[in-house]
Amino acid sequence: MKALMSLGALVGVVGLLLLAGMVFDIIPSTTVRLVEGYMPMQMLFEVGCFVLGFTGLSYMLNAVGMGIPRFWQGIGFWVFFLLYIKYRIYPPIPFSVRAMYGTVALVAVLMWLSSNEEDWKKFKQPILNVLDAQTGFNKFLRYVYLVALPILTWGFSYNAMMPKSEEPIELRTVHPAPPASTKVHGKTYVLQTALNPYRVNPEGKYDQEYTNSLIVEQGMGRLMKPNANPWDENATGYLKYVREGGEIFFQNCHFCHGDNLNGRGLHAFAFNPIPANFTDPGTIAQLQETFIFWRVAKGGMGLPNEGFPWASVMPPWEQHLTVDEMWKVILFEYWHTGYYPRTWD
């Protein structure tokens, strides 16, 4: 038990030092990187680690007789969480969202503190002590609070009322509801039934299982399977179409969506929101191939209102590409990211 708790304490201290170092720029802020596409999981994992670390730390401090009172533990953890979501998460999230997380965290802390009567009493005690002001120090504290609270409230409300020019928050639906069918180059495609004509096995039949076995491997780098090189001179069928799709992607799409399909292309920095990151499990991995076909063909202009047409510079690709070219690009995007298109069943 003791060894386990010491380990926890060690993790906690190292984590805190790392975090503080990164926030104050003592060590490079990229020391522990946010892994692309896995940020929420990583955040949860990191906070979990810190909780374990704090538990260990608290145990160790108690063991050497320097335990921190419940009251300060609660407040300390809450403050830690607020600072964590403010400084750790990148890109930064707006204050209103942080306020929501902060409130949830506060409720969680209060629940933890009031989980049994004794703990709750221990938590309340310092507050009541100051209110009752039995000792000289508490008396002094009480006067400090009496004076400081109104002044602080005045300061905060003054600050809040000063006219400010912060960018208004505009939340937008990332994957708006698609139409039942879409008409591209004079032909109507029903999204439920249309199939990518290039997702085929060597017999020329539509075959997800076969094509999925040839896509890029998941894991760092997302490299192609050693025996499935689209650039092999003898590549035929699916792999040849992947290469052709890649050629089209790199002649048209990489300017925004990037060489690694992660939305960091040459022009990406100028746009808001920045272009979609296909390596993120929340984009094409979540969607049917026909949905992508509709989005590619109609672009930002074809978005319904909740998707904010004006916030997208995505071209209606039907202006630039043929239907075949669009299907091939989609084939390539799934190949390169190593994701399976979602199916209807």
């Binding site: 002044i151 409300s157 003054y158 009322m161 006219p163 100028a270 004006w310 916030a311 510079v313």
Partner: peptide, 25 residues
């Protein structure tokens, strides 16, 4: 091209900014 930016004409500071915080305090 740029993305959509916002022009924001800073208003003169309204009187309420000075009064309300005092009331709240």
């Amino acid at each position: 091209v740029s993305a959509f930016y916002y022009t924001f004409m800073n208003p003169p500071i309204p009187q309420e900014t000075y009064i309300y915080p005092v009331l709240i305090a």
